[in-house]
Structures are given as C-alpha cells and as structure tokens.
Nucleic acid binder design. Structure first.
Length: 578
RNA sequence: GGGCUCGUGGCUUAGCCAGGAUAUAGCGUCGGGCUUCUAACCCGAAUGCCGGGGGUUCGAAUCCUCCCGGGCCCGCCA
C-alpha cells in the first residue's frame, strides 16, 4: 500500500510546487522514511537549490503546503494529513491506508507483496568448480544468489537460475587424473571422496612437475573430442555435482538448470566466438596465444582468449555461455566472488565488443579463515556440510531444552528449519561488499535477532490462530474481505505493525531494484520486531469485546502471512510451532 | 608498484549510490519483567571526534582529495 501512498503524495506536492511556479516532475521529489512521519520530504531543500537562495527552505515548505489544493488532497484518500515542521513537509497516512493494507494481505495471501515487474532474467550463481564439496565461501554465493532469485521473483520477474558447471578446465583434468591414480572412497559423500583424491593429486604436482604433462595431455584430448577422456571427466564431475546438489537442497537453494561448459566446445560456439572477436580487429598474437585488446574500456592488459597450445580458456567458454544465454532472456545477472571482479569486467567489455547483451554482475567479498584464505586445492576449508550439520545440532539442543515433551520428529524438523534458517540469515543480513572472517564461535552463536527471531514471531502468530475456531467465529469462509472492522485497531503497536506490513512491496521493490537482498533481510527482522511488540502489549484471545477480538485476529492472520512471505523470500522455512 | 573494495561504541552491523531533523540494530556489560495468547520474547541504562587530514556546501557518516589499515585482483588458473 505504501507505493500507492507515495504516488499520491508525489502528485499532491508536485502539483502544489508547480502551481507556485517551480518546475519539478513528481518522480524527482525526494523522500525519506523516518520516525518523524510516514513519509518525510526534503522538497523544500530541493527547490531552494533551483531558486538559489531567494527564500529559506522553511518558507518554501510553508508555501507549498499552503498551495495544496483542497480537491487534490480530498482525492488522495491514502493521505491522512500533511504537517509542516520547519523546512520539512511530513505526510501521514489515512485510516483508509491501514484498512486497505489489511484487506490486501487477506485477499492476497501468499501473493501479498508481489511486484508488477515483467521480463525474463537468467541468474547464475554458485557455479563452484566440481572438484570437491561446497565450503563456507561458496555458500555466501549460493545464499546470496538464491535469495536474490526469490526476491526478483517476488518483484514479478520470470527468473531462471543456472549453475555453470566447469567440467572441462585444468582443475577438472587434475580431478580426472586423480581418480585414476587414487581409489575413491565410496562410503562417504561423493564430493568429499573427490576432494580427497584431488588434494593428493595437487600434492603430487607440487612434488613432481612432470605430472603436468599428463594433465595437459588430458586437456588437449578433451578439446579434440576423445571419447574415453570425456567420459572419465564426466564421471568425476557427476560425482562432485551430486554431492554439491545434496548440500544445496539442504539449504533450500534451487537451480533450474546445470549448464556444462563442455557443451560450448562440442557445439563449436567457443571457436565461433574467437572468430568473431578476430573479426573486430581487436585481437592479436602474443607469444603464440591469441589476446584481445580491451583498452577502450580502460583495461590496460589484454585478455587471453586462446592458449598458445590452441586450447580455450575459462574466459572464452564463459563468453560463449553468455552469448548463448543472451537471446533467451531480457537480463542476465551473475553472482560472483570478489576474485572475479577484474575478469567479469573484461567479460562484459568483450561481450560489448561482440555487440551483445552484457550481464549485470553482483560481487561479494571473500569469507576467509582466521589463518588465511580457503583453498579447495590445498584442502584448507570448512565444508558447508560441516557448518550446516553443526548449526542443526545447535538448534536441536535449543529445542530439546525448550520443548522436551515434543516428539523426536518435531524436534528434528524444527532443528533443521532453525539451523538452516539461522545460517542463511547470518550470511544474507550482511551487505555483500564486506569481507568476513569465519569463526565457529560466532557462527554457532545464534544471533538474537536472526532467523529464529523471525521464525518465532511466525510461530507465535500461528499459535494464536491455532487456538481460534475460525469457522465458529467467522463463518465457513474464515478470514475473508471485510469480515472485521479494522478501524478498531488503534493501539500504537497495532498501527506500527500494520504500517510495517504495508511496506512489504516497497521493500521488495528496493531490494530487487538495487540487487541488494540484505536490505530485505532487515525488513523481515523489523516486521518480526513489530509483531513481538504487538504480541507483548496487545492481548488477542482474551479480549472481551468480540468485534475487537475479530479485528485483532485478522491482524495476527495478516502478520502471519507477511512473515511467512518474507521468510519465503529469504529461503527460510516458517515453522507453525517451535 | 597499479586497480577495485571495505574501515561506524569492546565485538558484529544498517545508513553512503540519489548530502539535511537527536547515527540503525544486535551481541557483550549493568538493571528490570513469566498466576496474563510459547521468555528463541519484552523494557530500561551505559558505551560513538562514523579510520585520519584537507576540501566542496547554508549543511558531510554520505560527495571530492590525500594518507593509514584490512580484503581481493593484476594474460595463456578458474
């Protein structure tokens, strides 16, 4: 409802300002949500800049408010009042805004908060190399990407999520070679079995350089289509991906498609891209390798697109991949680690050179260990599985303490939802451009206002509703439009909660627009916070007045929907009880 | 050496892109609240030269510049 309210405010104030001879488009009016008003505007400051110091902002603000036409204000039914405080024009919502918000939630249910965007987005995330299990650095990518996909979907976009599988590069050649040299432990998770032999192989390479010749031979064989080598690569990759998929599933991270790099070798797209880059006249030979000059976009160094031995590189295949994706969508978004900053810029530049669509890139900074950065190759990492298992264990201990009488199944179920949720929330709530250091103590210490806090608010709402006989109270339809008088909800905690619920679509809009999922994570926390305030101060089941009770139940029901929808956007399960 | 990025109370962190009303929240510390819908909750207190200097502006955590510190990157790895 907030978005509609904002539009009305912009219209009313825009008209008033323009009637005074200013020339401002209503979209240009800047707003802020503050504690002083439901919508505060600095319009007076903006206009002062236009007229260069003729009047002070307080006078301008006063003039604008004075110029608001009565009819204009009357037709803006979501505006309650406009108040003047010095240079600030503070606008407050009407009762209708509050009533309409609850009507919308109850009518919308799981669709409440949906945005109106259209268009197809191809989102790529995680795409960790299949040389071992996901580690705690990878899951920042997975959680960021998955949450982003959920938020973009909520905003209305048609989102397809892809995992780009590097099944052909040097690292996979090493994996494949390792599989022939060392036995795989079939009793453990397949990605763990792969990393064990991969680490050993890398130790061999460090000791004996001649191993590299074997590796290079394998790479060459794959690119020239040797069936047997391709099969052995595929087998190793399949094992790793099977293990990785299991981890992703546990985390509620969804991919629609796993796209293999090798397909762009097989299809010849890679060589096609190289030819087309040559045709731009921007390529040249450099010690036998083919490089492309991207200095027009400020890249000092050239980009290698074909090795001197004639094989392709990750970058080349990535170009082919993006060229393949482009016609299938309106936008491409890649979620990548900070180590890809330079290369992704070069990729964008090269794609531009080819005249194609360019992906938007979301970069997240590294997660390192106290002793330094993680490395799959060296076997120095904390696996996502270990972290998740310990988080679930910690959650189990909590639930055991709080609800010992519940069934084993219930406890395990809640422990999984809370453990996974806490992990996802702790990672997503932090803005991605902060680099972090992983440490077990803080990871396992459930943040007080993290996922469990939000889940708990949802469980509290569910609990109240579970003690209500909806049919007896409200008829067979349960909660339907207009069944209660929402104007009875006048307690400060009630009004604050409704206003927060009304912000849902706006917050999705911001988060989707900036590709910043963490801002929505904060909204979910604020929502839970306001619900807990309401829960603490406003009784529902034991109010005497039947009409008031109905209205409050409707608010609880609406809160539950908003909380559930918010959690869903974060990929966190919403338990009915915990 | 060059480029990108981050630096906000003891710790973690929002706000910075689009500069304005007492800088956000959590942890930790101290103090309070369960005969009232699950206390994974709520209330109160203390704690900040917003890394440092300079600049732009009526006004800077926010913009510019230099410096310091952490992270990442700097062609035939991905």
């Amino acid at each position: 409802m907030f978005i509609e309210f904002k539009n009305q405010v912009q219209k009313v104030l825009g008209e008033a300002a323009n009637s005074l001879g200013y020339d401002i488009r209503k979209e240009e009016i800047s707003f802020e949500v503050s504690e002083h008003a439901d919508l505060a505007t600095r319009l007076a400051f903006q206009l002062m800049a236009v007229k260069k110091g003729k009047e002070n902002p307080a006078q301008i603000a006063q003039a604008i408010v004075g110029a608001v036409r009565k009819e204009s204000l009357e037709s803006a039914d979501l505006i309650g009042k406009i108040a003047l405080l010095g240079p600030y024009i503070n606008v407050f919502v009407s009762e209708k805004y509050l009533v309409q918000t609850l009507e919308n939630v109850i009518a919308g249910k799981e669709n409440y908060g949906n945005g109106k965007h259209t268009g197809k987005i191809l989102l790529e995330h995680t795409s960790a190399n299949p040389n071992g299990p996901l580690h705690v650095g990878h899951i920042r990518n997975a959680i960021l990407g998955d949450t982003l996909s959920r938020i973009l979907k909520k905003a209305g976009y048609d989102v397809e999520v892809q995992y780009y599988v590097n099944d052909i590069g040097r690292q996979i050649a090493v994996v494949s070679w390792a599989c022939t040299r060392y036995p795989l432990n079939m009793d453990i998770k397949p990605d763990n079995a792969i990393v064990d032999v991969y680490v050993k192989a890398n130790q061999d390479i460090a000791k004996d350089e001649s191993v590299n010749e074997h590796i290079e031979k394998l790479m060459k064989k794959v690119e020239t289509g040797d069936k047997e080598t391709i099969e052995s690569f595929k087998h190793a990759v399949d094992m790793a991906i099977a293990g990785i998929s299991e981890t992703l599933r546990l985390m509620n991270v969804n991919h629609d498609k796993f796209v293999r790099e090798s397909q762009f070798i097989e299809s010849g797209d890679v060589w096609n891209v190289i030819d087309r880059l040559k045709a731009t006249g921007k390529t040249k030979d450099s010690d036998g390798a083919l490089v492309v000059d991207l200095s027009d976009d400020g890249f000092e160094k050239t980009l290698v697109i074909r090795r001197s031995n004639g094989t392709s590189l990750y970058t080349t295949r990535d170009l082919a991949y993006h060229e393949w994706k482009a016609p299938q969508c309106d936008r491409m978004i890649d979620v990548l680690g900070a180590d890809h900053k330079l290369i992704s810029g070069q990729l964008q530049s090269a794609l531009k050179l080819l005249g194609g669509k360019v992906p938007e890139v979301v970069i997240f900074e590294f997660v390192s260990l106290p002793e330094g950065s993680m490395s799959t190759r060296r076997g120095v990492f904390i696996s996502a599985d270990d972290l998740l298992a310990q988080m679930i264990e910690a959650a189990y201990a909590e639930i055991e303490k709080r609800r010992p009488e519940e069934s084993e199944e219930f406890k395990k179920d809640v422990a999984r939802m809370v453990g996974i949720g806490a992990t996802r929330y702790d990672i997503i709530k932090v803005s991605p451009e902060k680099s972090t250091v992983f440490d077990w103590k803080t990871a396992l210490d459930f943040e007080k206002q993290g996922a469990p806090f939000i889940q708990y608010a949802h469980a509290r709402a569910s609990n109240i509703l579970s003690k209500t006989d909806e049919e007896a109270a409200f008829g067979a339809g349960g909660f339907v439009s207009g069944f209660a008088d929402y104007t009875l909800l006048t307690e400060p905690a009630e009004v604050a909660l409704i206003k927060k619920i009304a912000m849902f679509e706006q917050r999705i809009e911001e988060s989707a627009g900036n590709l910043k999922p963490h801002t929505f994570a904060i909204y979910a926390r604020e929502l839970a916070d306001d619900f807990n305030q309401f829960y603490r101060y406003v009784p529902v089941l034991n109010v005497e007045d039947a009409e008031l009770k109905k209205s409050r139940l409707a608010l609880v029901f609406s809160s539950k929907i908003a909380l559930a929808n918010a959690l869903s956007c974060l990929g966190i399960d919403a338990p009915e009880s915990m």
